[in-house]
Design a protein around this nucleic acid. Structure first.
Lengths: 192, 192
DNA sequence: ATTTATCTATCTACTGATAGGTAGATAGAT
DNA sequence: ATCTATCTACCTATCAGTAGATAGATAAAT
């Protein structure tokens, strides 16, 4: 699946930055053209110039987010050990949580997937497919195919859920605890 | 923590039913007084009669939801085995997912906790505290105190996250898979 | 008489979206 | 070098629709 990365003007990127921050706090409905505009110092019509419809904006935010995460994770099939890759995955999630005190973008949007415009929901789905596939491939060196796939969805789900707990309870030890537990279990599985 | 259960009129309960269904799809912003009113056959002013502010409505929906789940789970310290209790916990989550194709209410609201009115966020926090405490107590018979607490947050987080995956990917096998994996790991831990 | 549950009517604020205009930069033709 | 056309990135002004919320009337039940 080739994913050509769109290039945005500096102002469009500014808009995407603010939109992402807002969406990570309150979901798709938490952004409005007026708020975004005033946050970046233009009028709402100018935001429409860069992103004609709200759906376009939502799609762009999610796509850019996914590409950023993918770039941070690197190739799941390179020479690193499965444990090293898993540690990196956890680090990426921790960074997402501590970044502006906000939860993973797709954690918020995933929960309200059925409420989103179909195009935006499709981008969110692609994010989760990408993440679970990456994790499955990262574990492929040490586990059977089906075991790696099962572990992958468990790991991604657990990390997402731990973020919800951390944000809802206002205590990011939940994410750290889950990461510790996950590492322990995966090490056990790899030893089998 | 004593929690006196509020009694609502039939119409108020109807409103709460519709509000819960909408919120489980799209979060707190997904409900509007007009929509709720027309869904139950009254005018929006009448909804304000039952729930003066939107915050009151949100609090009531979450509180009622929590009380229902607590009732379904029963006493975490009764004679059942930890495994039996965990199975019930998974069943409750599966029911929530299949119920109207919607995700756990607090999964949606938890993700946007920082965006919610403080009173509503507090109810969501109480839900998660209740759930993790229940799970911790349910495991207390077979695990050390700290191990039970760590396992509890991992389990609740993993179940929440699996629901997000199931909804976002449109495939509820993810929840089933996570439940299987969780059971396997807890059994291993109990055997230690 | 008071309470309960509804109504009509209305308010202000905000939503996404569009039409139409403008200043400045760029590119090609003369 | 200059004229022309196009493009970029914004603007003002406005629209219809919806948001939460309130005042005040009504009718029935206690």
């Amino acid at each position: 699946m080739r994913m050509e990365q769109k290039i945005y003007s500096p102002k469009a990127n500014e808009i995407l930055d603010v939109a992402e921050a807002h969406m990570r706090m309150g979901g798709f409905d938490a952004i409005s053209f007026r708020d975004l505009a005033s946050a970046v110092g233009v009028k709402s019509a100018s935001v429409h110039y860069h992103f004609p419809q709200k759906t376009d904006l939502g799609k762009a935010v999610v796509a850019r987010y996914r590409e950023r995460v993918v770039a941070a994770l690197g190739d799941p099939q390179d020479a690193r050990t499965p444990i090293a890759k898993l540690k990196l995955l956890c680090a990426v999630y921790s960074a997402a949580l501590s970044d502006g005190d906000s939860v993973c973008l797709c954690c918020v949007l995933g929960a309200e997937a059925r409420y989103l415009p179909p195009d935006v929901a499709a981008e969110v789905r692609l994010f989760f497919e990408t993440m679970t596939n990456w994790t499955r491939d990262a574990l492929a060196a040490g586990l059977s195919k089906t075991k790696a796939a099962d572990a992958a969805t468990h790991i991604i789900g657990a990390l997402q859920g731990a973020m919800v707990l951390s944000v809802a309870l206002g205590d990011d030890n939940h994410l750290k605890n889950t990461q510790k537990t996950l590492m322990r279990f995966v090490k056990k599985d790899l030893a089998d």
